[in-house]
Nucleic acid binder design. Structure first.
Length: 554
RNA sequence: GCGCCCGUAGUUCAAUGGAUAGAGCGUCGGACUUCGAAUCCGAAUGGUGGGGGUUCGAAUCCCUCCGGGCGCGCCA
């Protein structure tokens, strides 16, 4: 509908210009759904945008356009010039009805579009080191990344979800040593557990017990290097398996697990470094190899190879991002915790320096999550190994509630996550508000079925009976779903879907309280049932985008 | 000190640069013999941290100050 109005405006503008009423170009105006019903069904700001270039009063321009617009399209009931120069469109009562037919025809695909033009996109997220279980912060990244991937796929992008595994380097060494020590301790060997750099979490004892089950005390007989190597492998694969399980519990499934180690096996990292040297992007100093990041907008030059010859994480990351583009992704989205934000200029500098498509990479920073219980902060310290894991949170509050909690907020603001609030099955918890609407609609349809009324096809109902204000508003809202999805995908803001669903069900619940769907009037019942199916489909599609279930009963 | 993010109602959060800034919770008062009260209806509550600017129009963009968070490793 918005497109229809936009086209008409453009046509009218051209006509006016041919008559010499306007001289300039048509600006990039907006057709929007006004917040207030008093401003019509759709509003256009074109007159205000033309004011300057045409050197006329906005309302005067609006007047000229409105005269031409009269009678230009049968759906237009009435036009009004309002406020500073808005042109408000009032549409015929039945202007929106056809969307119900569209929903019915498209079903689970209603809301999808081809805005993405099949563009290949990678969303890389979570990518937590396999050194310990996921915590609540990873959960936020997981919910966001997964929902974004779903929304973008629905909007016509060809999306791949990837998890980057840092399975090599210092932290892995530390992990291996930590496990080795726990293993020795469990076998009653007196060993000191140094504070420095090692992982103290309880989970390492579990893994050590597992190791004993598999290897008994054989690892004790090995030379230390070999033993630690084995422990590293063992711990990493156990933890990674745990991470995968946790994510599955959370409804997140990756298409691809990319190992940092393979970048070395394939020679990508050394090759990349050679290339950089050849291009004059690197220099040696104090025994290390540096990237001239300051030439490309970063505040410091960055080390790629340490004085002792080992590469840094950054070196891997350069090769990794080169690899992403080499695999044909036209757009790459990285989702990181906000504590990594200082890393962004470095990566941007690399893309610029290496001639990679820098505008094709976007980094979304997810802000911290403050975990609370009854409003009080829950102590979280990775150092001491005391923290609430994502799994514990999911088991306590449920995947749906946790996801919805994350996905109703923008990612760039910190978030308070109160376990007790998330757990309450009540008004305080918006996920139930939305799910309840879905269950309620299912129940209505079932009720009608008991009375022998089956949902009618759109073609067989008299949609003109849907004349209540609230029906009209709900249908309008339903018609906005596709553009909402597209906007959400293009802006990479899945929370818009959650907000939309809450608004939609708010309208539904209010309507429900005032109007009966199933009545003795068969024709009206059929029409309203069709409206119910429309809402139900949009709720299902919307919740699916968030990875939240749409229960038929609660 | 420098850099990035945030600051909206008692509270948790919304608001493609648009019209009178909206919801939930909480508070107060109402609504179940009728499709599910995990619901609905009504009332009170802020003028968007302060101050400047750009714009026909600013919570949104720019500058500055204040407050909070996070960074500023040859860690990841």
């Amino acid at each position: 509908m918005k497109e229809r109005i936009r086209t008409i405006i453009a046509q009218v503008f051209d006509a006016c210009r041919r008559e010499g009423m306007f001289s300039g170009e048509l600006p990039d105006f907006v057709v929007e759904s006004p917040r207030s019903r008093e401003h019509g069904d759709l509003a256009v700001n074109v007159a205000m945008m033309l004011a300057k270039s045409e050197k006329k009063q906005p309302r005067q321009i609006a007047q000229l356009l409105v005269e031409k617009l009269q009678g230009s399209d049968p759906v237009i009931e009435k036009l009004e010039i309002a406020g500073p120069g808005f042109i408000n469109f009032y549409l015929k009562q039945d202007a929106w009805h056809s969307v119900l037919g569209e929903i019915e025809a498209k079903g689970t695909r209603f809301g999808s579009c081809d805005a993405g033009c099949g563009q290949k996109v990678m969303v890389e997220f979570v990518s937590a080191n396999p050194t310990g279980p996921l915590h609540i912060g990873h959960g936020r990244g997981a919910a966001l990344g997964d929902a974004l991937a779903r929304v973008m796929a629905f909007a016509g992008f060809d999306v791949v979800r990837e998890y980057y595994i840092n399975d090599i380097g210092n932290q892995m060494q530390n992990l291996g040593r930590s496990l080795y020590l726990r293993y020795q301790q469990l076998l009653k060997k007196e060993v000191a557990f140094p504070e420095e750099g090692l992982y103290k979490g309880e989970y390492l004892f579990d893994i050590a017990r597992d190791l004993i089950l598999r290897q008994a005390d054989k690892v004790l007989q090995m030379p230390e290097n070999e033993a630690i190597g084995l422990c590293t492998q063992f711990a990493a694969s156990a933890i990674l398996q745990g991470i995968e399980d946790d994510l599955e519990l959370f409804g997140v499934k990756f298409d691809s697990w990319f190992s940092e180690k393979t970048l070395f096996d394939s020679g990508d990292v050394p090759n990349t470094l050679e290339q950089m040297k050849a291009k004059g992007l690197a220099y040696e100093s104090e025994g290390a190899l540096w990237f001239k990041a300051t030439d490309f907008g970063d505040e410091k030059d960055r080390v790629m190879v340490r004085a002792d010859g080992r590469t840094t994480y950054f070196a891997s990351d350069i090769a990794y991002h080169k690899n992403k583009f080499k695999r044909g992704f036209q757009r790459v989205i990285d989702i990181w915790g906000a504590d990594h934000h200082g890393y962004v200029p470095r990566l941007a500098a690399i893309l610029k320096a290496m001639g990679l498509p820098q505008e094709a990479l976007s980094v979304i920073l997810v802000q911290m999550v403050n975990l609370l219980r009854y409003g009080q902060p829950v102590a979280m310290s990775t150092r001491s190994g005391e923290f609430v894991t994502l799994r514990e949170v999911i088991e306590e509050v449920g995947s749906d509630a946790a996801r919805f909690m994350f996905l109703t907020r923008r990612s760039d603001a910190q978030l308070d996550f109160d376990l007790e609030v998330a757990k309450k099955q009540s008004d305080e918890n918006p996920v139930y508000y939305v799910q309840y609407a879905h269950a309620r609609i299912c129940s209505i349809i079932a009720k009608a079925g008991e009375k022998g009324v089956l949902p009618a096809q759109f073609a067989d109902i008299n949609a003109a009976l849907l004349i209540e204000d609230q029906e009209r508003e709900i249908i309008k809202k339903l018609s906005q779903f596709p553009e909402l999805v597209a906007g959400s995908a293009l802006a990479a803001e899945p929370h818009r879907v959650a907000v939309y669903l809450m608004e939609l069900v708010g309208q539904f619940h209010s309507y429900y309280a005032r109007h009966r769907v199933v009545t003795d009037n068969q024709e009206l019942t059929a029409a309203r049932l069709n409206l119910m199916s429309g809402i139900k489909t949009v709720l299902q599609n919307g919740l699916a985008l968030l990875g939240v279930t749409a229960p038929e009963k609660m």
